[in-house]
């Protein structure tokens, strides 16, 4: 029997503390991300989507639980693995898909692609492909809110890899020093590309790093949407006095980008974490509690499939930005 290097947490247990509608809404969002990305992977294989495509499959509970705990007036800064964040935040699946196609109808008119989803209307400030690059920006967005006396939290998502960057340490220090309303959301999927966290960090308790900057720091099971939501709520309640750090312990099921040989992790480890899948465990809990019937699940799945199909049709029917507009938006007109 192989020893698993990074054992999965015990399966989520305990009652789901939500009514049927809210619980099903969160399940729906997890499923929307999963099906969108499964389709995106397929389209990538067909050459419809190019470039880099970083899938969030396995980590859906984090974006869904965390973002449902936020308010519309809050800011979100995300990474290059952000399809889920954009979708849950309220960007249409069609706009995301069209952006991945590089079409003019995409959220950034084909200028950004998969890694750079932006949406002013939902206060999504990207889509940043520089690891750690979003942390200083989030700190500044929070500074603006503080100086303008706006009741607004900035949630900044980043992975475990970013914790090794200077931007992480500088930003946490600055945010704590100035008591800025930032929620530092660390999506710890245990690997920065192919480097396991213990091969990159002298201190693998990432929350301890945040605590050293004199801010509250929580850790939770990022495979459990209930735990994610509750930890985020708990953190948000503390944000008024300064920044708060939350570590979501999660796992990426797919390759770092579309192709890697996965030489850096055990197949058995991946399989074990798959048994903790955020969607099927939550579905089972809801069914056991009578908050979801099989018929409701099938109806939901069909709705999501229809949304994905419509998004693909929208992207396929999309147009190309005219080359004459190549230089548009380098500067503000």
């Amino acid at each position: 029997m192989t020893t698993i290097e990074h054992p999965a947490p015990p399966p989520p247990s305990g009652p789901v503390p939500w009514d049927k509608d809210f619980a099903q809404a969160l399940l729906a969002d997890m499923l929307r991300i999963r099906r969108l990305e499964e389709k995106a992977a397929e389209l990538y294989g067909e050459g419809r989507i190019r470039g880099f495509l970083h899938l969030y499959i396995g980590e859906e509970a984090v974006a869904v639980g965390a973002l449902h705990a936020l308010r519309a007036e809050d800011n979100v800064v995300a990474t290059y693995r952000e399809h889920g964040h954009a979708l849950v935040r309220g960007m249409s699946m069609a706009a995301i898909m069209a952006e991945m196609y590089g079409k003019r109808e995409g959220c950034a008119r084909g200028r950004g692609g998969s890694m750079h989803l932006f949406d002013a209307s939902t206060r999504l400030y990207g889509g940043n492909a520089i690891v750690g690059g979003g942390l200083p920006v989030a700190t500044g967005l929070a500074l603006a809110a503080q100086l303008r006396k706006e009741d607004r939290v900035t949630a900044c998502f980043f992975g475990d890899g970013a914790v090794a960057e200077g931007a992480f340490h500088e930003s946490l220090n600055l945010a704590a020093l100035w008591k800025l309303p930032v929620l530092f959301c660390c999506e710890n999927n245990l690997y920065g590309m192919g480097t396991a966290v213990e091969r990159a960090e002298a201190q693998t308790d990432l929350a301890a790093k945040a605590r050293s900057y004199n801010m509250p720091a929580l850790s939770c099971d990022g495979m459990d949407v209930v735990a994610v939501y509750q930890a985020t709520q708990e953190a948000l309640a503390l944000v008024g006095q300064g920044p708060v750090f939350v570590e979501y312990r999660t796992y990426r099921y797919r390759a770092h980008s579309m192709f890697d040989a996965e030489l850096y992790r055990q197949k058995a480890e991946v399989e074990e974490w798959k048994t903790r899948g955020p969607i099927h465990t939550f579905t089972a809990r809801l069914k056991a509690e009578g908050k979801l019937t099989e018929a409701e699940f099938l109806a939901l799945d069909a709705r999501v499939a229809a949304e994905v199909a419509a998004a693909v049709a929208f992207a396929e029917a999309g147009t190309w930005e005219p080359v004459e507009d190549l230089l548009k938006d380098v500067h503000t007109p």
């Binding site: 200083p136 967005l141 603006a144 303008r148």
Partner: peptide
């Protein structure tokens, strides 16, 4: 790195 980046964020935030 952080305070120049914070300047970017503050500018995005309306300052």
């Amino acid at each position: 790195l952080a305070f120049v980046g914070a300047g970017i964020g503050a500018a995005l935030g309306g300052l």
